[in-house]
Each structure stands twice: as structure tokens, then as C-alpha cells.
Design a protein around this nucleic acid. Structure first.
Lengths: 209, 209
DNA sequence: GTCTATAGAGGGATAGAC
DNA sequence: GTCTATCCCTCTATAGAC
């Protein structure tokens, strides 16, 4: 493993372990067991290192899940995978890394670009799966899949942060969202008359919007 | 306005303006136009000041919206108020403050308590309104209102952070969530037979959960 | 590529005058 | 309560030896 790779891995790890407020060239170098000056030799600035590290970490995790996502064709399956992804990435610290990146990105142009990249990568992945699961359901006509995928990604970040301050509350929140899954069945079980009325309602809404 | 009050206001403002990474006794003191040493005289540590500031700011905003919430009795009204609240608090920087607080709270016990307090305050407020709006609807049987209120609060935080890195993406995300509102009508328009089937389905799910 | 050393700025916190 | 001055630490970044 090269020094550059050690630094990239350590930067992502430090971001999730110490948060954006505890991130520094020194803390990253210590985690990588690398001389502090090498950060500036290899990456120029700390921000540029963090930028590269977050992009790489995101690419790796999205790539890892691509195979799992490919198997998902129904919304209940997707919900299960979503919860599994939440648990696993929580342990891996990847969502935490994203959350801290997003917090730092609010007033930092370099991190903002990295944050946008990471959100776009996850959203695109989620979008294709949701679109596949919704094919044939009346929900496909109701939902803006691209927007929904972004909303889900953003909500993940918020839930991760909430879990950090109130784990019990976060569990009840996730359970409540799970519970809403029956709504999907309701729409899918709609008879032809009700479906037609629904379609008309959606059309009316889209015209006024 | 006393020095203490100036510091409280400046701390909340600095947190949203500079982020948790740019927060320091010196930046807060500058924003308050107050001598830096007075932070430690009045609050002991910077964390304790931020803690008090976030609690006070949250109390004030929740109190401000209580009257608006009291008028809301239907879910469409609630959605409108939610979006209005989102816009206004975004300008006021209150959601940004919350988001930065939550990011800092992940590895800081003092901020974690403040974060938990703020989330609980908003969630409690939202919970009572949602419960009122759902009264009489079959949704009341499906939804865990307490958990849902927490999920909504957490999602707000995530959307705020997302908006900071990709405003356009955040708008499509919010629009997509708005679009799902027709699902509420679908359930409310269900006939008695479908309602009974839905109730049975929910009971079955709750038994296995 | 990697190391030590250090410049120069900014950080939390305290002492002590007023 | 408020001020100045200061201690001592950590920060980013660079210079220069190896």
C-alpha cells in the first residue's frame, strides 16, 4: 500500500471518527502512520486530500453495492436492502463520513464539490433500482423517481446524524418509515376505477404545479 | 441586551454562518462584538456556550411556530406549513445551525445533549400536529406518529445539508416528496372493504414485527 | 519520497489590573 | 463585569537535509 493510498484511507476514516471539527493534517497523518508533511507533498492541501478521499470511498462503496442492487426488483426487497445498507455502512463509518463531509461542505467550495459528487453517485444508483421496482405499479406515475432518490439519500444523512445523538429515537424513526411500506401495497391493490381516479388526480396536480 | 444575550445570539449565528469547523471563541466573540475572555467568564467553555445558545434558539423558534401549528388540522395544510417553515428557517439559518450542531454532536458529549434536546423539541411539536391531522384517517392506524415525527425532523436536517451542496437537486427532492402527498388522498378515499383489508394487513405486520 | 524543524497564524483558557 | 496580556497548544504549510 502506497503512502498516497494510506492517506486516502486514513482521511476518510478520520473524517468519520473525529468529525469535520476534529479533522486536521496531523490527525490524518497519525491515523495513516505517515509523516504529516507528506500530506502537502502528495495532495497540496488538506481539503484536496479529503476531497479525493471522499470521492474514492464513495466510488468503492457504490461499486460494492451495485451487485446487491442489481438483484432487487421489488420495493419490499429494496426496503430490506436499504435497512441492511444502513446498518452495515453505519458500522463501516461511511454514512458518518458523508454526513461530516456534507457539514463541512456548507462553507467550503472544495468539500462542496466532493459532497455533490458523493450525493449524485448514491442518488443515481438508488434511482435505477427504484425505477426498476416501480415498473408496472401505479406508483411509477405518481412518483418522480429522480427526485425521490435524492430525497432518500438526503434523509439517510439526516438519520445518521440523528442516530448519533439519540439512537433510540432514530430506531423508532426508521421503524415508522418501514411501517409506511404498506402504503405501497394499498396503491398496488387499487382496482381499475380507483386507479383511473388516481391518475386524473395526479394529472390535475401536475398541471397546477 | 446584556453581554450574555449577545454571546448566545452570536454563538447560534456563528454556528450557522461558519459551520462547526469554523466555530471558535474568537469568531463568536467577534460576531458578538465582545471581548473573547468574557465567553469563559460567563459560560466556562465554548461548548457550554454553544449548548446554551442552541437550546435557546430552538426554544425560540419552536415557540414562534406553535401558533402556526395550532391552526393546522389537515395534512395538506401541514405540508404547506412544512415547506414554508423550511424556506423561512433556511433564511434565518436555524436549520443550518441545527445541522452543524448535529455534526459536531457526533463526537462531543455536550453538543450531543444539545442536539438531542433540539431534535426532541421539534419532534414533539410535529408529533402533536401530525396526530391531530391524522385523526379519523385510516392512516392513523398505519403510522407510528411519534416515530414519523422524528423521521421528518431528521430528514429536514439531511435535506438542509443537501441543499447546501446541490440546491437544484434539493428542490427536485422536495418536489418529489410533495408529489407523494396524493398517497394520503388514496388511503382516505378507500372504501369500507379496502379499509378493512388494510387494517388486517397492518395487524398482521405488527404481530410479526 | 521521506524526514526534521520551524515559521506564522489561530486556538482555549487564565491571571490580574481596572 | 470587562479589559489586556499572556501561556501553551494545535493548526497549515514550507524549507531544506537526506
Amino acid at each position: 500500500m502506497t503512502t498516497k493510498d494510506r492517506l486516502l484511507a486514513a482521511a476518510a476514516e478520520t473524517l468519520s471518527d473525529h468529525g469535520i471539527a476534529g479533522l486536521s493534517a496531523r490527525t490524518i497523518a497519525a491515523a495513516a502512520d505517515v509523516n504529516q508533511a507528506l500530506i502537502f507533498y502528495h495532495f497540496g492541501t488538506v481539503d484536496d486530500l479529503v476531497d479525493a478521499a471522499c470521492r474514492q470511498a464513495t466510488d468503492q462503496r457504490v461499486e460494492f453495492y451495485r451487485a446487491y442492487f442489481a438483484d432487487v426488483t421489488t420495493l419490499p426487497d429494496l426496503l430490506r436492502l436499504g435497512r441492511e445498507l444502513h446498518e452495515r455502512e453505519r458500522e463501516m463509518g461511511n454514512v458518518a463520513m458523508m454526513a461530516q463531509l456534507m457539514a463541512g461542505a456548507q462553507r467550503n467550495a472544495t468539500l462542496a464539490r466532493a459532497g455533490q459528487y458523493a450525493m449524485a453517485a448514491w442518488s443515481a444508483e438508488i434511482e435505477t433500482v427504484v425505477a426498476r421496482c416501480l415498473a408496472g405499479s401505479p406508483l411509477a406515475e405518481i412518483a418522480d423517481v429522480a427526485g425521490l432518490a435524492r430525497a432518500v439519500s438526503a434523509a439517510f444523512i439526516g438519520l445518521e446524524l440523528y442516530e448519533g445523538v439519540d439512537p433510540q429515537g432514530a430506531t423508532t424513526a426508521l421503524d415508522a418509515l418501514d411501517g409506511l411500506a404498506v402504503l405501497i401495497d394499498v396503491v398496488d391493490d387499487l382496482g381499475p376505477v380507483a386507479r383511473k381516479a388516481l391518475r386524473a388526480k395526479v394529472r390535475r396536480r401536475n398541471r397546477t404545479a
